[in-house]
Design a protein around this nucleic acid. Structure first.
Lengths: 227, 227
DNA sequence: CCCGATATTCAACAAATTTTCAGTTTGCCT
DNA sequence: AGGCAAACTGAAAATTTGTTGAATATCGGG
């Protein structure tokens, strides 16, 4: 009878015990949880599952936590919380922890972990707690809906992601390259033209014939302008 | 006093003394109590008896409490309260306890146990104290029944769980993956297609030809819309 | 052990979305 | 003004995703 929160958490640890314990606890708390036993699996799941938070053990065989953390942060916008045993903390480990958004020493209380997760999510994904209002736009990520002037826009998944990106970064010029990386993923093989195509369809749906809302900055990219 | 009719408790402990003591005490309190001496028996009874709360000793010969807890949580929606002797509490045990919904150190007072049971039941089965009404839906978990516009729907067990999940989380988009985890269990081996198949049968039974009640959010999942 | 109900799989189909492409327009520079 | 690269556009092609009907498997009660 758990109330879901729409927050996705990926737990990465090589110890099955801890993995399972965290999975059950967090699931019970209403999170959407997925687990991975090693770094490679974690990277795969990251793309597929798109978690908001990754909980990562520093000490793992093969690729260590630091390596994984570096890749995670490069690939997606995600909060990383690192775990390590208290007696493993030497200078090297301290260094590794710095790439993460937060870290905890084992053993820790479950409540503390929850507190940190919420802190991170609030910080990094404010739109997961109700809708974000930006000028005439209202973004509700839990409903996967964007309203423009009170009307719900009918958007395809890609259109949704693109408009969200543009609106949340209104005022900034976003290059086609950056848009491609953020919306299509850094490993997308196609041409930048696809961004233009999608921008057009967004303009259509926003009735933005004069390109007043989504402006073209020739040679640089696009920028949304709030009225 | 409390309306305890219908609250079923399973007590699992290898010590006959404690078992009997708890059985009598809880029965006297008005609960429907069943007991098991070991993990295997507990698992069997779980399916047959379908308790709301399981009280579980951590230290048991054979399958330990953690193992049992894991299986219980995987199989049914049930609150687990773990018991352990105060001097058995080392870090390992602490970890294990966290998979449970609550835990208590022995010796404990009977009143304390009762308090925790009530807390858990209220938390996890709010509809044991009257049905939950969400828009045109009425969910009665005791009867495993859902009414839609005053009419009882004829649902199979899986349909019931799925509709309950969707309705209780109306407004949120639930991904097929998450639905699979919550309704079929995280270890379900099959394809996501089965979710689609069940969604269809729910839409049939709700007469939701236009998919207005259970909406498809292409690429993301499903969402129920209350009218 | 058989029966009916339920659960699961499968493949064909439908529909929406994504991607590509080529021709056109636009803005900018000299 | 002319050249040129960048941006825009419409539409076809390719791909992905969801829907559906039906076949098959599995479960639980009698």
């Amino acid at each position: 009878m758990h109330q879901l929160k729409g927050i996705k958490i990926l737990v990465v640890d090589d110890e099955p015990n801890i993995l399972q314990f965290l999975e059950l606890g967090l699931q019970n708390e209403g999170f959407d949880v997925r687990t991975a036993q090693d770094g490679v699996k974690a990277i795969t799941l990251l793309k597929e599952f798109q978690p908001h938070v990754v909980i990562l053990d520093v000490m793992m065989p093969g690729m260590d936590g630091f390596e994984v953390c570096r890749m995670l942060k490069r690939m997606e916008n995600v909060a990383v919380i690192m775990l390590t045993a208290r007696d493993e903390v030497d200078d090297r480990v301290k260094g590794l922890m710095l790439g993460a958004d937060d870290y905890m020493l084992k053993p820790f209380s479950f409540e503390e972990l929850l507190a940190r997760i919420y802190a991170r999510v609030r910080n990094q994904f404010p739109n997961l707690f109700g809708e974000v209002v930006v000028g005439p736009f209202q973004i509700d990520d839990r409903r996967k809906e964007i309203k423009f002037n009170e009307r719900v826009l009918e958007l395809s998944p890609t259109e949704y992601e693109l408009l969200k990106l543009l609106v949340l970064n209104h005022g900034l010029v976003l290059s086609k390259r950056m848009i491609l990386d953020k919306v299509w993923g850094y490993d997308f093989g196609g041409e930048e033209n696809i961004v233009e195509v999608y921008i057009r369809s967004l303009r259509d749906k926003l009735n933005d014939k004069e390109h007043q809302i989504i402006r073209t900055i020739r040679g640089s990219g696009y920028r949304v302008e709030l009225s």
